[in-house]
Design a binder for these strands. Structure first.
Length: 104
DNA sequence: AAACTGACTAATA
DNA sequence: CTATTAGCCAGTT
């Protein structure tokens, strides 16, 4: 694992339960403000049973951007709803209500 | 080193 | 609103 991926995992672990954050913000916290795609790549290689709450990371619209090929998107939505996240009819969650601001 | 890929984003039409 | 384009970065081949 690269140092970047480790920083990404560390940042994602800091996300409080019931909150969400977008890929770009995680990238910024990891020290690479424009590495949103790199964040997605790192999370896609996460082993099952990891302690990293990868499901709290969504795209900038508050919608699930996870690959639909493996049914992970459906699982992610279920996990988020279990934590209290609510998605509207467009499949988007409110940043005002659930967004996490790492700086307060 | 160069080309490709992908759980991204911003700008444009 | 949707679709397309281009820019971006990490990791693999």
């Amino acid at each position: 694992m690269s140092a970047f991926s480790e920083r990404v995992y560390a940042c994602v672990r800091r996300i409080p339960k019931g909150r969400i954050i977008n890929y770009g913000s995680v990238a910024a916290l990891a020290g690479r403000p424009r590495a949103a795609r790199g964040v997605g790549y790192a999370l896609s290689h996460l082993p099952p049973g990891t302690d990293v709450p990868w499901w709290r990371v969504v795209n900038r619209r508050g919608a699930i951007s996870t690959s639909r090929a493996s049914g992970l998107a459906q699982q992610q939505r279920a996990l988020l709803e279990r934590e209290g996240i609510v998605f509207d009819e467009l499949g988007e969650a409110s940043w005002e209500r659930f967004g996490w601001d790492p700086y307060g």
